[in-house]
Design a protein around this nucleic acid. Structure first.
Lengths: 345, 345
DNA sequence: ATTCGCGATGTTAGCGCTAACAATGCGCGT
DNA sequence: ACGCGCATTGTTAGCGCTAACATCGCGAAT
C-alpha cells in the first residue's frame, strides 16, 4: 500500500499570500489588492487582513509578484563609480526618493567601460526592472539594442545631449566652462588659464574647457590651456600645472581647474612656492568636493547638481510609472550649476 | 463557430527560454542547465545553444528563475549612508566582487535609523536574496526576527562584537584608539589630547576614545578629552576644539581627532592661530578621507579597511553560497587599520 | 551476456503571485 | 418592477523558470 506523497517541497514553509487569505477568510486576490490597490478593498477587510498579516509576519514575495505582473518594483542604476565624491550624491538622492515609494535600487558600476555597462544592463533586465538609469549617453551597440527592446523608461543622467532620444537629466558642461570664464572676467582677471583633466576618457571635462575657450576668445583674448601629463593622478597633475604656470611670464592671474582634485593640487603647489592665493593668482575648481571648504585658502568652485540629478531621475521614473502624478513626463531636464565663492578667488 | 482565443497575453513577446530550447532542438531544462551548470551539457549542444541565444538576443528572466529556485542571485546591503567617504569604498568593493560572480546588488541606506533599516530588510527579503549584509550590530526587534526566520547568510560589517551570533567583518575601534595613543607616545609626545566626535549616535567613535584613554592611563598619564558642542558640523567642531585646546596651559603637544573631518577643522584653526603643526602640536585623524593628503600640512591618519570590508563581505557571501570554494566559512573576521604617517605628526 | 554506474537529457509539476474576466449586490432612475 | 452603473469580491489561468524525478544509452565490471 503506497502512500502517495507529494514529490516537491521547495518553498521552505514561508508564509504565503494564500495562507494570509485563508486565515482572513478572503480570497488571495483580495489580499493582493490590499497591498497594491488598498482603496479597492473595503475598510472592514483591510483591518482584518492587516491583523492577519501582522500576526503571521507575512512578507510579500516580490519575486512572484514581479513574475506575475511582468514588471517588478525595482529600478536599475549603472554609474561609473560608486565611491567617487561626485556620483555618490546622485545615488543617494536616487535611492532615497525611490525607496520612499516602495521601489528598490539595483546598483552596478561601470568604471566608464561600456562593456561592463552592457553586462550590468543585461543582468538588470533579467530582473524586469520598472526602469533603468544610466550615466552619460555613450553605450555599446548591444546595450542600445537591449534598451530599445526592453520597452521600459530609460534615463540618461549627467550628460546632456538634447538630440538623443531617451530621457535626459543633466547640465551643460560647456555652459560650466562659460560660467567659470565669465565669472573671472567680470571680476577683472586678465590672464585666465585653464588646466585640463589628466584622466583620458573624461569627455565632459573637455567640454568645460571648450566653454572656457569660447568665452575668453569672445572677450578678445587667447585661450591658455595647460594639459598635465596623462599618467599623473589628478592631485599631482594639479601641482604640475601650478608649478609650470607660475614659471611662465607673464603669469596667469587666475586659473580654472577642470576639477577640484586638480585645483587642490594647484593650491598646495602654489602655497609651497610662496604664491599668494588669490592675490597673486585666483583659483577656481569644479565639483565642490567635500574638502573644498577645508583647504587653506578654501577653494572656490562650481557645484554640479549631483543630488538633484538623483532626486529628479527618481521623480521622473516614478512619474513615468504613474506612481507620481504628472500630465506629461518631461523628456529633457536641464539643471544649473552654481558658483560657490570661497577664498581662492 | 467560436474561435477559442486565449484569454491572457502578458509577457509582451519577450524571448523566453522555451523559445531558445525550441529553436535549438533541445528541451527547456537543457537550456537552463546551459546557463547554470554548463558542465552538465555536452559541448555540441553548448555551442548550438550559444548560437541560438546570440541570434535571438535571449536575456534570462532572473525573476522567474528566482521564483522557481526560491533563491535569487541577488544580495541586499543596507548601509548608513551612501555618499559618505567611509562607506562608499565598502559598497564599491562589495558590488564589484559580487557582480564578478553574476550576483546583483540591492542597496538601501538607513541613516543610522533602525526603523529605516527594518523597512529595507523587509523589502529586500521580498526579493528572496541569497544573503544580506548590514552595517553594525544594533537592529530593531522586527529586523532580528525577520533575519532569524529568513534562513540566509547574514553578515554584519564595520562593527565587531565577537559574542554576537551572525557572521562579522570589521575591526576593533577600541584597538584603533590604542594604536593612535601608543603611536604618539612612542614618538615622545607628552600631553596627548583626544577630540570626540560631535555627532551623537556614533558609538564607534566613543570606543576609539576609550582605547585612547586606557592607553594613556596605562602610561601613567591622565586622559584629556575634549567634547565639542553636539550641534556643530564636524569641521566646525574641529576648529572649536583646536581653539580651545590651544588656549589651555600647558597646551597639548599632540591631538587625536575622532575623525578626519574634525582633524581638518583642527588643522585649519591651528594654522589661522599661527600654531606650527606638527612642531607645536601634532595632529592625528581617523578615516583617511580622500582629502587627507591634500591638506597643508597633509594629515596623518588611521586608515580603516573600508574596501577590504566590502570585498571580504562579498567573498564570505559567495563562500556561504558555495560559489567560491572554502572548507568552512569563517564566522569572525577581524581586520586591521593602518597608521598613515604624513606631515601632521 | 548481464548488470551496474554514470553522464546527458527529458518530463512533470509547481514556485507565489496577479491580469483578465466573471459574478454579485446595492442604489438609482424611469 | 426593471435595467443600469458602480463598487466589491471571486475564479481561472498562467508569468518563465528550475527541482525532483525519470529515462536513455554506453562502456566497464562481473
Amino acid at each position: 500500500m503506497n502512500v502517495e506523497k507529494p514529490r516537491k517541497r521547495r518553498g521552505a514553509g514561508r508564509v504565503t499570500l494564500n495562507a494570509v487569505a485563508r486565515a482572513a477568510g478572503v480570497s488571495a486576490i483580495t489580499v493582493s489588492r490590499y497591498f497594491n490597490q488598498p482603496e479597492q478593498v473595503s475598510p472592514e477587510r483591510r483591518e482584518r487582513i492587516a491583523a492577519v498579516v501582522a500576526e503571521l509576519g507575512y512578507v510579500p514575495n516580490l519575486v512572484a509578484g514581479g513574475l506575475a505582473s511582468a514588471r517588478g518594483k525595482i529600478v536599475g542604476m549603472v554609474i561609473p563609480n560608486i565611491s567617487g565624491p561626485i556620483f555618490a550624491n546622485t545615488i543617494q538622492g536616487f535611492s532615497d526618493t525611490l525607496s520612499r515609494h516602495g521601489y528598490q535600487l539595483l546598483l552596478a558600476s561601470s568604471y566608464f567601460d561600456i562593456e561592463q555597462e552592457e553586462n550590468a544592463v543585461r543582468a538588470f533586465l533579467g530582473w524586469s526592472p520598472a526602469a533603468l538609469v544610466l550615466t552619460s549617453h555613450f553605450h555599446s551597440e548591444g546595450t542600445e539594442k537591449m534598451l530599445a527592446e526592453a520597452d521600459i523608461p530609460v534615463i540618461e543622467t549627467w550628460d546632456y545631449q538634447p538630440e538623443r532620444e531617451p530621457m535626459q537629466i543633466g547640465f551643460s558642461h560647456f555652459e560650466v566652462g562659460v560660467t567659470a570664464a565669465r565669472h573671472l572676467l567680470k571680476k577683472g582677471y586678465q590672464r585666465i588659464a585653464f588646466v585640463q583633466n589628466s584622466a583620458p576618457g573624461d569627455f565632459s571635462a573637455l567640454e568645460r574647457r571648450d566653454g572656457y575657450a569660447a568665452t575668453v576668445r569672445e572677450a578678445g583674448r587667447e585661450p591658455w590651456i595647460f594639459a598635465p601629463d596623462a599618467d599623473r593622478a589628478p592631485f599631482e597633475a594639479g601641482k604640475q600645472a601650478m608649478d609650470a604656470l607660475m614659471n611662465a611670464s607673464p603669469r596667469p592671474d587666475a586659473i580654472i581647474f577642470a576639477n577640484d582634485n586638480l585645483a587642490a593640487g594647484g593650491l598646495l603647489a602654489g602655497q609651497r612656492a610662496g604664491i599668494k592665493i588669490p592675490a597673486d593668482c585666483a583659483v577656481l575648481g569644479f565639483g565642490d568636493y567635500p574638502f573644498a571648504e577645508m583647504l587653506l585658502p578654501s577653494l572656490s568652485t562650481i557645484k554640479p547638481p549631483a543630488l538633484e540629478i538623483g532626486v529628479l531621475a527618481a521623480t521622473r521614473v516614478l512619474e513615468s510609472l504613474g506612481v507620481l502624478p504628472s500630465d506629461e513626463v518631461q523628456r529633457l531636464n536641464l539643471l544649473r550649476c552654481q558658483v560657490i565663492e570661497r577664498e581662492s578667488i
